[in-house]
Protein backbone atom coordinates (compact mmCIF):
# COMPACT_ATOMS: atom_id res chain seq x y z
CA UNK A 1 0.00 0.00 0.00
CA UNK A 2 2.99 2.30 0.45
CA UNK A 3 3.66 2.03 -3.26
CA UNK A 4 0.09 2.92 -4.21
CA UNK A 5 0.15 5.96 -1.96
CA UNK A 6 3.56 7.06 -3.27
CA UNK A 7 2.51 6.62 -6.87
CA UNK A 8 -0.65 8.63 -6.24
CA UNK A 9 1.38 11.49 -4.74
CA UNK A 10 4.04 11.36 -7.46
CA UNK A 11 1.54 11.20 -10.31
CA UNK A 12 -0.37 14.23 -9.06
CA UNK A 13 2.93 16.10 -8.73
CA UNK A 14 4.00 15.19 -12.25
CA UNK A 15 0.69 16.34 -13.71
CA UNK A 16 0.90 19.59 -11.73
CA UNK A 17 4.41 20.28 -13.00
CA UNK A 18 3.41 19.48 -16.57
CA UNK A 19 0.56 22.00 -16.35
CA UNK A 20 2.82 24.63 -14.76
CA UNK A 21 5.32 24.33 -17.58
CA UNK A 22 2.68 25.14 -20.17
CA UNK A 23 2.80 28.62 -18.74
CA UNK A 24 -0.65 30.02 -19.49
CA UNK A 25 -2.74 31.37 -16.67
CA UNK A 26 -5.50 28.79 -16.55
CA UNK A 27 -3.13 25.82 -16.59
CA UNK A 28 -0.86 27.40 -14.00
CA UNK A 29 -3.81 27.84 -11.64
CA UNK A 30 -4.91 24.26 -12.23
CA UNK A 31 -1.33 22.99 -11.84
CA UNK A 32 -0.82 24.78 -8.55
CA UNK A 33 -4.08 23.29 -7.32
CA UNK A 34 -2.80 19.80 -8.15
CA UNK A 35 0.56 20.50 -6.51
CA UNK A 36 -1.39 21.49 -3.40
CA UNK A 37 -3.00 18.04 -3.25
CA UNK A 38 0.37 16.37 -3.69
CA UNK A 39 2.04 18.47 -1.01
CA UNK A 40 -0.71 17.64 1.48
CA UNK A 41 -0.47 13.92 0.73
CA UNK A 42 3.30 14.12 1.13
CA UNK A 43 2.97 15.72 4.56
CA UNK A 44 0.45 13.02 5.50
CA UNK A 45 3.02 10.40 4.57
CA UNK A 46 5.41 11.73 7.22
CA UNK A 47 3.02 10.40 9.84
CA UNK A 48 2.95 6.88 8.46
CA UNK A 49 -0.12 5.06 7.23
CA UNK A 50 -2.74 3.55 9.49
CA UNK A 51 -6.20 2.37 8.48
CA UNK A 52 -9.20 2.72 10.77
CA UNK A 53 -7.41 4.26 13.71
CA UNK A 54 -8.25 7.99 13.70
CA UNK A 55 -6.70 10.14 16.40
CA UNK A 56 -9.97 10.40 18.29
CA UNK A 57 -9.39 9.28 21.83
CA UNK A 58 -12.86 7.81 22.27
CA UNK A 59 -12.52 5.69 19.10
CA UNK A 60 -8.89 4.70 19.32
CA UNK A 61 -8.42 4.53 23.04
CA UNK A 62 -4.80 3.44 23.04
CA UNK A 63 -2.60 6.46 22.22
CA UNK A 64 0.16 4.13 21.02
CA UNK A 65 -2.06 2.77 18.26
CA UNK A 66 -3.66 5.99 16.98
CA UNK A 67 -2.69 7.65 13.71
CA UNK A 68 -0.26 10.53 13.99
CA UNK A 69 -2.35 13.68 14.61
CA UNK A 70 0.38 16.24 14.01
CA UNK A 71 0.66 15.93 10.20
CA UNK A 72 -3.13 15.92 10.10
CA UNK A 73 -3.30 19.20 11.96
CA UNK A 74 -0.69 20.66 9.63
CA UNK A 75 -2.51 19.44 6.54
CA UNK A 76 -5.88 20.68 7.77
CA UNK A 77 -4.72 24.28 7.92
CA UNK A 78 -2.73 23.73 4.73
CA UNK A 79 -5.90 22.76 2.86
CA UNK A 80 -7.70 25.91 3.94
CA UNK A 81 -4.71 28.14 3.34
CA UNK A 82 -4.17 26.40 0.00
CA UNK A 83 -7.68 27.43 -0.93
CA UNK A 84 -6.96 31.02 0.13
CA UNK A 85 -3.79 31.04 -1.93
CA UNK A 86 -5.53 29.52 -4.95
CA UNK A 87 -8.09 32.29 -4.77
CA UNK A 88 -5.36 34.87 -4.43
CA UNK A 89 -3.55 33.37 -7.42
CA UNK A 90 -6.69 33.45 -9.53
CA UNK A 91 -7.32 37.05 -8.55
CA UNK A 92 -3.77 38.00 -9.45
CA UNK A 93 -3.97 36.14 -12.75
CA UNK A 94 -7.21 37.86 -13.65
CA UNK A 95 -5.92 41.27 -12.69
CA UNK A 96 -2.64 40.71 -14.53
CA UNK A 97 -4.52 39.40 -17.54
CA UNK A 98 -6.37 42.67 -17.70
CA UNK A 99 -3.05 44.49 -17.90
CA UNK A 100 -0.72 42.38 -20.05
CA UNK A 101 -1.51 41.76 -23.68
CA UNK A 102 -0.80 38.03 -23.76
CA UNK A 103 -2.18 35.42 -21.44
CA UNK A 104 1.36 34.32 -20.61
CA UNK A 105 2.98 35.47 -17.39
CA UNK A 106 6.26 37.26 -17.89
CA UNK A 107 9.01 38.27 -15.49
CA UNK A 108 9.04 41.70 -17.07
CA UNK A 109 6.87 44.40 -15.62
CA UNK A 110 4.11 45.57 -17.87
CA UNK A 111 5.23 48.24 -20.24
CA UNK A 112 8.93 47.39 -20.11
Amino acid sequence: MELAFSLLTGAITAAGVALLLRGDRFRVVLGIGLLGYAANLFIMASGGMLVGRPPLMDVTTDPARAADPLPQALVLTAIVIGFGMLAWLIALALRAGAETPEGKPSSKEPGS
Partner: peptide, 8 residues
Protein backbone atom coordinates in the same frame (compact mmCIF):
# COMPACT_ATOMS: atom_id res chain seq x y z
CA UNK B 1 6.97 13.21 -9.99
CA UNK B 2 9.47 10.35 -9.70
CA UNK B 3 11.43 12.19 -7.03
CA UNK B 4 8.27 12.75 -5.00
CA UNK B 5 7.24 9.12 -5.42
CA UNK B 6 10.60 7.86 -4.24
CA UNK B 7 10.77 10.36 -1.41
CA UNK B 8 7.29 9.45 -0.26
Amino acid sequence: GGAVTIGC
